[in-house]
């Protein structure tokens, strides 16, 4: 054990402190880490995009022999010419750089948005929606192990009222007044309980992240504690 001799670990520790210093206030160290971080991550993302997406998903499909060294398995497959479409759409998208061709980039954008909208239309209904409806179909009186359950019954009533009032809260075409207003008010109260539960539940996870950082400082860098 003992303090690390690895220059990279020292860099990591320096950056960790630089970022932490932001808690006190904005300062040149933070600003340096921030700008370094932006440059490195933007370049990282681009390189990964090229090597992990563009090469295997586009170039290897259009002209497989090109990738014979890096992706031997893909290079023997026949070329798939349908990939000319993303090639063309991608180039269209880059037309934004020219003031005259900017309108062509909208075609690519239209393809992106249309495709996602079409899949959202069906995906959401299937994955979440119907399941939530089914789970909300519950009996008023809860019977557990053949006998009446008081807690279960209260819980069922609250679930029913919770979903009911929550939906009322999200009504847009009716003024929230009178009984309707009361239901809507109950709805927002129950929503707040949910948000509180979410808040409290996340705290632990966040603290464990901080503990992880401390382990890096005291373990990997200073070598005071063992990991």
């Amino acid at each position: 054990m003992g303090i690390s001799g690895d220059i990279w670990v020292w860099i990591g520790a320096f950056l960790t402190f630089s970022i932490m210093s932001f808690l006190y206030k904005d300062n040149p160290f933070y600003k340096f880490a921030e700008h370094l971080f932006v440059g490195v991550s933007a370049a990282y993302w681009m390189c990964m995009g090229i090597w992990q997406t563009l090469v295997p998903n586009l170039i290897a499909k259009l002209h497989p022999p090109v990738v014979s060294e890096i992706l031997p398995a893909a290079s023997t497959k026949p070329a798939e010419y349908s990939y000319i479409i993303p090639l063309v759409l991608g180039i269209m998208f880059l037309m934004r750089l020219s003031p005259k061709g900017a309108w062509i980039s909208r075609w690519a954008l239209a393809f992106i948005v249309g495709t996602t909208a079409g899949s959202y239309l069906t995906r959401y209904l299937r994955s979440d929606f119907l399941g939530q409806i089914q789970y909300s179909i519950i009996p008023l009186i809860s019977i557990e192990d053949g006998s009446f359950s008081f807690v279960g019954t209260i819980s069922n009533i609250i679930i029913f009222l919770g979903v009911f009032c929550g939906l009322i809260y999200f009504f847009f075409s009716k003024e929230h007044k009178g009984t309707f207003g009361v239901a809507s008010k109950v709805g927002i109260y129950i929503l707040m309980i949910t948000f509180g539960a979410g808040f409290g539940y996340t705290v632990m996870a966040r603290i464990s992240l901080l503990v992880g950082r401390m382990q890096f400082i005291f373990g990997d860098w200073l070598g005071i504690i063992s990991r």
């Binding site: 932001f22 904005d26 921030e34 971080f37 490195v40 991550s41 933007a42 993302w45």
Partner: peptide, 15 residues
């Protein structure tokens, strides 16, 4: 465009 990575983006926006 700042960066596609989540937390570098946060650092920049906070700045």
């Amino acid at each position: 465009y700042v960066t596609a990575m989540q937390f570098p983006y946060v650092a920049a926006v906070n700045g």
